[in-house]
Write a protein that binds this DNA or RNA. Structure first.
Length: 694
DNA sequence: ACCCCTCGAGTTCT
DNA sequence: CTCGAGGGGT
C-alpha cells in the first residue's frame, strides 16, 4: 500500500518522511535478501527508493552515514548474511616451474610412504579464473549458495546464484545433503557484449571478466545478476551426507550425472610427465577456450589417499595449482618512496607510471628492501618489467637496461629515518655476524611514523577493533595532536571541545558520526588479554604469540609479573612456542619505563579480561605423545598430523613430560624407557580408536 | 648443523 | 601473497 508522493516542504517534514521510507525499504530488503520472499512488486519497491533518493537530493543533510543510499553503492558486502562453511573452503599451494610438478608428486609419495615405482593417479584440470562458490543442495533442491569469503565464513548469495542458468535448481541422484563447490565465471563473449552495453548506458565498465563476474555475484539486486550471463563449473564438494565416489575423477563424473556442469578438460593422469603434458595441452588451448583460466590444478585421484594426506596450514597436501606465467608489462619507475612501518622497518616502494597488468592498473609496487634494490640495480627513471605475483601483488621483476636514461645513479638507500631523522640501522646477528635485511629506524619512542602506525595497529580489527577509528582518522587525530598514545583514544570524549573546537565541527565529522565513534570507543573498554597483548604491537608478538602468552599466564597481572623481573626473558621462553628472541623482545618492552607509563595510562582506561579456562576438548588435547616402532596403517607423518589436529604435541624422545607412547612392532629401547618412566603405552589400533577413527 | 613449518610484517587494489 | 626469521625437531 504505497501513498502518493507528497512534496515535503520543511526539513522537519522531510526528515520524518525520509526516516519512514528508510524503514520501509529496509524491511523490504530484509524480506527480499534474507528471507527470500519479496513483499512488494519491483515497481513499488523502485518507487520507494526513488522517493527516498529524491528527498536526499532536495535535503542533502539527510544523507548521513546511516543513509541506505550510502550503504548500497558503497559497501554491499554489509548487506549479505554471513554463512559459516561446514567444511572450510581452503586455498591451493602454487607451483610455477615445470620441475616442481615432479617435486609435488615426489612429496606426495614420500608422505604416503610409496615407492617411486608405485602408481599414483592424479587428475589435471584447468584452473578457472572466477570466484569460488559453494552451493548446498538438500534432498536435491538448491538450498543455499555462498562465496568463499575467508575460507571459513562467506556471504550468502543464494538469490543471485539461483539466477545462474548453468546452476541446476534440482540435482538428480545426489546424496541427500550435497554441497557442490566450483567456480562462477563469465565467458569472454558475454563479457565483451555486456561491457559494451554498460558503457553505452553510461554505467561503470569492468576491467576483466573475473571482476565482472564478481561484481555480478555480489549485486544486491538479483534482477541485475539475472541479466548477467554467469556460468559455473563444479570441481569439488563440501559437506556430503554420504560418500558418493572413491576417486576425484569419479566424483567429477558423478557431479556431471547429478546435473552439474563440469569442465571437459579434466583428465586422469598416471605420472608427472602426463600431468605436464596435459598442462601443455591446456596452455595451447588457452586462447580458444572462451573463458579465462590461470593455470592447471593437479589433485591426487584416490580420495582415501587425499584424506591421509590432509592439510598443511591452509592448503591441502593432495592438490596444487600449476600457474601460467603471470602477465607482464613495462613502465617507468618514477620515484622510490620510503615507508616507515610500525616496527620501524624502512620499506622502499616503487612509484610507477600507471600501467595495466592483468586487467588492473598498477601504480605502486613493493621493492622489499635495500638488498633487493641493489640486486636488481633498480634506479629512478629506469624502465622496469612489472608483474603481479600470484596475480595479486605487483612486483618489479627486472630493469630494461637498454632503456636506462643516461646519468641515472644507483639508488642510495637512506641511512636516517625519513620521518624522524633518527639513524636507521641494519641489526647485526650476533652469532653469524650478518646484517638484517631490513633497515630500521632507531627512534622507536620518538618517531611519529612508528607512533601513527602503532596506533593504527592498536585500533585495527584483530586488536581493539574500534569501529570508525580507521587509518584516516588516526592520521588526522595524530597530526592535530589529539591522539598521541593509545590511552589518548579513551580520553577523547572527555577532552572533546576542551582546548579546540569539538569534533563534530571538524570537516568530515558530524553529530552522528562523532557520537558513533565515542560509543565505539566505549564499547571496547573491556578487552580479552590476547587481543590486548596483540594490540600493544610488540615486535614478534602477532596474533598467535599473543594468544600463546595469554593462554599460558591467564590474566594480565600474571603476565606482567612474569615479564618484569631481570630474568623475565628466561621465564617467558618457557612458554610453548615462545623462544629466546621473542621472550627477549617482550621483556625489553616491559623494561622500558616509557612503555610502562603508557601501559599504566592505558590500564586506567580499559579493563583486561582474564582468559577463560581452556575448554577441555578432546581427551588427547594438550598431551605429549611419542610414536615408536613401525606403524602399519599410516606413516609417521600422518600419525603426527592426526595428533596435532587434536591439539596434542608429538615428541621424538620419552621424558618425564611424555603422556602417552604409541608403540608399534619393533619398538626397542623407547619402550623400555616408557616403562621406566611409567608412561602409558598403547598400540596402533588403540591409538586409532582414541584419535577418533582417523 | 641442517630442514620444515609457522608466524609476523609488509604490500596492492577493488 | 611473499619474504624472512623464529621455533622446534631430526
Amino acid at each position: 500500500m504505497t501513498k502518493k508522493p507528497q512534496p515535503a516542504q520543511t526539513l522537519a517534514m522531510a526528515r520524518a518522511e525520509h526516516a519512514r521510507l528508510g524503514a520501509e525499504i529496509a524491511e523490504h530488503d530484509k524480506r527480499y535478501y534474507q528471507e527470500d520472499a519479496p513483499s512488494v512488486s519491483d515497481a513499488e519497491y523502485d518507487d520507494l527508493r526513488r522517493r527516498y533518493l529524491a528527498l536526499e537530493a532536495a535535503f542533502p543533510e539527510l544523507a548521513d552515514a546511516d543513509s541506505l543510499s550510502r550503504k548500497v553503492g558503497a559497501a554491499p558486502a554489509e548487506k549479505f548474511a554471513k554463512v559459516r562453511h561446514a567444511v572450510p573452503m581452503l586455498s591451493l599451494g602454487n607451483i610455477f616451474a615445470d620441475e616442481e610438478v615432479e617435486e609435488f608428486c615426489a612429496r606426495v609419495r614420500r608422505f604416503l610412504g610409496l615407492s617411486e615405482a608405485a602408481p599414483l593417479a592424479m587428475t589435471a584440470e584447468p584452473k578457472i579464473d572466477g570466484l569460488s562458490c559453494t552451493i548446498r543442495y538438500e534432498d536435491g533442491e538448491l538450498k543455499q549458495a555462498a562465496t568463499r569469503g575467508d575460507g571459513y565464513e562467506g556471504e550468502d548469495v543464494t538469490a543471485n546464484v539461483r539466477t545462474i542458468k548453468a546452476v541446476p535448481n534440482r540435482l538428480t541422484g545426489a546424496p541427500r545433503i550435497f554441497e557442490a563447490r566450483g567456480e562462477v565465471y563469465m565467458r569472454h563473449a558475454d563479457f565483451a557484449a555486456l561491457n559494451a552495453r554498460q558503457a553505452e548506458a553510461g554505467k561503470p565498465t569492468f576491467a576483466n571478466p573475473r571482476n565482472f563476474a564478481a561484481g555480478s555475484l555480489r549485486q544486491l539486486d538479483p534482477h541485475i545478476t539475472a541479466s548477467r550471463p554467469l556460468a559455473f563449473f563444479a570441481y569439488a564438494w563440501g559437506e556430503v551426507s554420504e560418500p558418493f565416489a572413491t576417486t576425484q575423477f569419479g566424483a567429477i563424473e558423478a557431479m556431471g550425472r547429478f546435473g552439474l556442469p563440469t569442465n571437459p578438460l579434466t583428465k586422469l593422469c598416471r605420472s608427472a610427465a602426463e600431468l605436464l603434458a596435459h598442462y601443455r595441452a591446456i596452455e595451447a588451448e588457452r586462447a580458444n577456450l572462451g573463458y579465462d583460466i590461470d593455470g592447471v590444478v593437479y589433485k591426487v585421484d584416490d580420495l582415501a589417499l587425499q584424506q591421509r594426506l590432509g592439510f598443511v596450514s591452509r592448503s591441502p597436501r593432495w592438490a596444487t595449482a600449476h600457474k601460467f606465467p603471470s602477465e607482464r608489462a613495462t613502465t617507468v619507475l618514477e620515484a622510490i618512496e620510503i615507508q616507515v612501518g610500525r616496527t620501524g622497518a624502512l620499506t622502499p616502494v616503487a612509484k610507477l607510471r600507471p600501467v595495466t597488468v592483468g586487467g588492473v592498473v598498477v601504480a605502486n609496487a613493493t621493492l622489499h628492501n635495500e638488498d633487493e634494490i641493489a640486486r636488481k640495480d633498480v634506479r629512478i627513471g629506469d624502465t622496469v618489467v612489472v608483474q603481479r605475483a600470484g596475480d595479486v601483488i605487483p612486483q618489479v621483476v627486472e630493469v630494461v637496461i637498454e632503456r636506462r636514461p643516461p646519468g641515472a645513479e644507483p639508488f642510495k638507500f637512506p641511512e636516517t629515518c625519513p620521518a624522524c631523522d633518527s639513524a636507521a640501522l641494519r641489526e647485526i646477528d650476533e652469532k653469524t655476524g650478518e646484517a638484517d635485511v631490513v633497515r630500521r629506524c632507531t627512534g622507536h619512542l620518538v618517531c611519529p611514523a612508528q607512533a601513527v602506525e602503532g596506533l593504527k595497529h592498536f585500533a585495527s580489527r584483530n586488536a581493539f577493533d574500534i569501529e570508525g577509528l580507521g587509518d584516516k582518522q588516526i592520521e588526522l587525530f595524530f597530526k592535530e595532536g589529539l591522539v598521541r598514545t593509545p590511552a589518548d583514544i579513551f580520553t577523547l570524549r572527555a577532552r572533546d571541545g576542551k582546548d579546540r573546537p569539538p569534533l563534530r565541527d571538524w570537516e568530515g565529522f558530524g553529530e552522528t558520526s562523532v557520537k558513533n565513534l565515542f560509543d565505539a570507543i566505549d564499547a571496547r573498554r573491556s578487552i580479552a588479554l590476547n587481543r590486548f597483548l596483540f594490540a600493544l604491537g610488540i615486535r614478534h608478538v602477532g596474533e598467535t604469540n599473543a594468544r600463546r602468552l595469554a593462554r599460558h599466564y591467564g590474566d594480565w597481572e600474571a603476565l606482567r609479573a612474569a615479564a618484569r623481573p631481570p630474568d623475565a626473558a628466561e621465564e617467558l621462553a618457557s612458554v610453548d612456542g615462545i623462544g629466546p628472541v621473542v621472550a627477549e623482545t617482550v621483556a625489553d618492552f616491559f623494561a622500558e619505563p616509557r612503555n610502562e607509563a603508557a601501559l599504566d595510562a592505558l590500564l586506567h582506561e580499559v579493563t583486561v579480561e582474564s582468559m577463560e579456562a581452556v575448554a577441555a576438548g578432546h581427551p588427547l588435547t594438550g598431551k605429549t605423545i611419542v610414536f615408536t616402532g613401525s606403524l602399519e596403517r599410516m606413516t609417521r607423518d600422518e600419525a603426527k598430523a592426526m595428533a596435532e589436529r587434536l591439539g596434542a604435541k608429538v615428541s621424538g624422545s620419552i621424558s618425564g613430560k611424555t603422556d602417552l607412547v604409541v608403540a608399534g612392532p619393533g619398538a626397542g629401547s623407547k619402550l623400555a624407557k616408557a616403562r621406566e618412566f611409567g608412561v602409558e603405552t598403547i598400540d596402533e589400533e588403540e591409538w586409532v580408536k582414541r584419535a577418533g577413527g582417523g
